[in-house]
Amino acid sequence: MNGWRKSPARFKIGLLIMLVVGLTALCSFVWTPYPPTAIDIASKLQPPSMRHWMGTDHFGRDILSMVMVGSRTSIAVAIAAVAIGIGIGVPIGLLAAERRGLIDDALMRLNDLIFAFPALISAIMITAVFGPGALNAIIAIGIFNIPVFARATRGAALSIWPREYILAARSTGKSDRRITFDHVFPNVSHLLMVQATIQFSLGILAEASLAYVGLGTQPPMPSWGRMLFDAQTMIGVAPHMAIFPGLAIVATVLGLNLFGDGLRDMLDPRASSR
């Protein structure tokens, strides 16, 4: 565990926050203080108390339970969206770096095309066309992760290709494809991990934004973004309805960013000497 002691503080804090969020999400599968979708109009808009630690919303639902289950939604959507980005974007980037020339140009111009659209607006467009829901939110966010990973992978891979060990590998008769798998990919993967944490936190924010405009996860499944939407007209009457899901989003995104920053510092020594 020498690495842990040497790791930067932000990495530790970030990891800690992520663990808390992750465990909360796991915990919500087996236990929440109240059923998160149980409507009890008689106890609506209660401020935080011993019975309801985060108060209740306008339908009398327990906000803590909803925040717990909401974390699950956010994490699941963000992970799936990052997986789409990595699964499609990384091969594209590796292929472009390996083949160069026309294929490289074609793939990268296609990337630029997707990049040219503001991601959130396009995600709204996609969910508006294909209908709201968690699955379409994943696809919409995932599509915009593809060029991000493709570009990052290609850039990193291009800097690997001129290295001498690649030349050495080539001289042993390995094909370009083999070299990509055996040498290029392992050497860019640390960079992709950093990129993945960034995209993960962006995915959490995107999911919340889509849910906020009514295009993400649908009721009765709790979602942080929709909790904020429901809270906005009641902010004068029941501020706790906005504060807790808002804090959950802030904490998760902060945790991921600290973690990602720390990870980059550890994996790329040049960046830490800022």
Binding site: A38, I41, F59, G214, P219, P220
Partner: peptide, 22 residues
């Protein structure tokens, strides 16, 4: 929108599972 969430919950109590489509 709000009424739909409540009615869906009330229908669920008698076994009718209403999927909400906004």
């Amino acid at each position: 929108r709000r009424g739909g969430e409540i009615i869906a919950a009330q229908l669920a109590a008698i076994g009718i599972e209403a999927q909400i489509v906004p």
